[in-house]
Design a protein around this nucleic acid. Structure first.
Lengths: 115, 115
DNA sequence: CCAATACATCGACGCATGTCAATCTCTATG
DNA sequence: CATAGAGATTGACATGCGTCGATGTATTGG
């Protein structure tokens, strides 16, 4: 069972910023799922490392050692980020390359902004 | 043991946006704690309800019934938000009034922004 | 076709976390 | 001082989640 099934986009298209008007239970649930996807130190580092990597993409083998976690654990976190719509996966040959989904993080950020 | 001991400000003063440069393990841990504080449907609704409430403040009694959770659970969530530096608590007489900490959510949002 | 490599999936384990009922603390007010 | 009301704290419980080792699945190279 994954933490976040709904892509970020499904959340960010739905509702006004948190503090503009009271969020309802259903949207709160969806937004919480998206936020949970990045509210983890390993996943924050993965997102950051992918973004900072050459050509803005990285394969699992680039990430496992610097992150200091086992390969299955890294794959697990990457899956959560892909399911949440934050990263995309592109398999080329033996390697799986991960990228940031453009706008995904920004959409999330916009829901938190109060001004 | 609370989820987030470090106020948001301690995080947001420390580091560049996630995707600008690779975040280190210590800052990732701190940022994850702050994000975890709001990555929960009940706490998102609490933040939203406090912001939308009259005079931008609300006491526990205002929040318990509309949220549909028990009073201890609501107090528990509010404590996590206060510990994370997202809400402030002001006890006046018998009542405890909660407010948004100005800029706290925006600081978090800025760390997620990629542009 | 076989071996090696990259990655995903599975199963298990332990800790973290959301929830509530019961209780405690503090304040206001008879 | 006694009582009532608001809210915090405690203890218990079930579930969620991060982690790893073992295993499964493709794909490449010999």
């Amino acid at each position: 069972m994954s933490i976040a099934q709904l892509p970020v986009m499904d959340v960010t298209a739905c509702c006004a910023p948190l503090t503009r008007e009271a969020i309802d239970a259903v949207n709160a649930e969806a937004l919480a799922r998206s936020l949970k996807a990045i509210a983890d130190p390993a996943r924050l580092r993965l997102v950051s490392m992918v973004a900072a990597h050459e050509d803005s993409e990285a394969c699992v083998c680039d990430l496992t050692e610097p992150l200091g976690l086992s390969q299955p654990t890294v794959s697990h976190h990457l899956k959560i980020l892909v399911d949440a719509g934050i990263l995309s996966r592109d398999k080329r040959g033996t390697w799986a390359y991960y990228r940031l989904v453009p706008g995904a993080l920004d959409s999330l950020a916009n829901l938190l902004i109060t001004v």
